[in-house]
């Protein structure tokens, strides 16, 4: 028999030590198929492009130079700031910010409304918001495009109602892309806020009302600060995919509504592609997202528990 307690193990401590190695498969898969590729992408952004699509292993800053600096058509002029890509980023950020705000404006009241339903009907409301969340995003975007077309059901309905005399052209505008982003990611806003409101202690609202706060003052002073983690989580979940969105701008927008996702996609299509440049744009996009996540993590860290 082994010595008392030492070396051998029967208890919880042993159990905990035994299950920890079960993390290894997830480390391996995500490490090899995600972390390593992202690291490799960073390396690619410093390589030289090959004209048939691909790379030559010569290190250069050409991709980032192309992104930020304009050296003229033949590359021999003094460098000026290249606005083309910065404009695309700026447009993407704006569209993502707007979509986030719009989703919040509709998503918060929806989440609140559902969370305050009696337990019996709450499930049904929640179920209704959850379904679109799991419906194929491509199909949803295609459906929206079908609806918004010049000769589509929306214009026909408006015309037959006599509200407009000729079809409104929405497709291929920034507005269409904005509607697309809002529509795509709205459920992402509702669900985390719902989770936060569901945990909210409504006695706090009653206490505020008891202390002479109006309904809206209670919302501003008590509810919003308390459910803030859910709101921020929702905003992140809408903002990040909106920033890198591909389907909404591609299917609903046009040349003037070009966003980061399409810019990256273009670099990897056929022989016209530029892999190092595409990798560099992806790196810049990821850096932006990382900054947002870090700000979020710090805000979470400071929040009272």
């Amino acid at each position: 028999m082994a010595g008392p307690g030492r070396g051998t193990g029967s208890g919880d401590a042993t159990y905990r030590a035994l299950v920890r190695p079960l993390l290894i498969p997830s480390w391996l898969v995500i490490g090899i198929l995600m972390v390593l590729p992202v690291a490799l992408m960073a390396v690619y952004s410093f390589l030289t492009k090959e004209f048939r699509g691909g790379v030559i292993w010569d290190f250069t800053l050409a991709a980032y130079d192309q992104f930020f600096l304009d050296r003229g058509l033949f590359g021999d002029e003094p460098p000026r700031i290249e606005w083309t890509y910065i404009t695309i980023f700026w447009r993407s950020i704006w569209q993502a910010v707007l979509a986030t705000l719009l989703c919040l404006l509709i998503g918060f009241p929806t989440a609140w409304f559902i969370a305050t339903r009696p337990a019996r009907t709450r499930g049904i409301w929640l179920f209704l918001v959850t379904i679109p969340y799991w419906v194929n995003l491509l199909i949803r975007t295609v459906s929206l495009r079908f609806l918004l077309r010049d000769q589509g059901p929306m214009n026909e309905a408006l015309m037959s109602l006599g509200l407009i005399s000729s079809p409104i052209s929405i497709i291929n505008t920034n507005l269409a892309v904005q509607i697309g982003l809002f529509y795509s990611y709205l459920p992402f806003m509702v669900l985390p806020i719902y989770a936060a409101v569901e945990r909210y202690n409504f006695a706090l609202s009653e206490a505020a009302a008891d202390l002479y706060a109006s309904r809206w003052a209670t919302l501003r002073e008590i509810v919003l600060p308390v459910v803030k983690p859910g709101i921020i989580a929702g905003c992140i979940l809408v903002f990040i995919p909106s920033l890198g969105a591909f389907l909404a701008p591609d299917l609903l927008g046009g040349a003037k509504t070009f966003m980061i996702g399409s810019l990256i996609d273009e670099q990897f299509r056929g022989s016209q592609g530029n892999w190092p440049f595409g990798a560099a744009v992806a790196m810049i996009l990821m850096t932006l997202v990382l900054i947002v996540l870090l700000v979020y993590a710090r805000a979470q860290g400071r929040a009272p528990r």
């Binding site: 992408m41 990040i240 595409g278 990821m286 997202v289 996540l293």
Partner: peptide
């Protein structure tokens, strides 16, 4: 956390 398009690019390169 990582935007899908970034994962797409990284995976293709890998």
């Amino acid at each position: 956390m990582v935007p899908e398009i970034v994962i797409a690019v990284a995976t293709l390169i890998f």
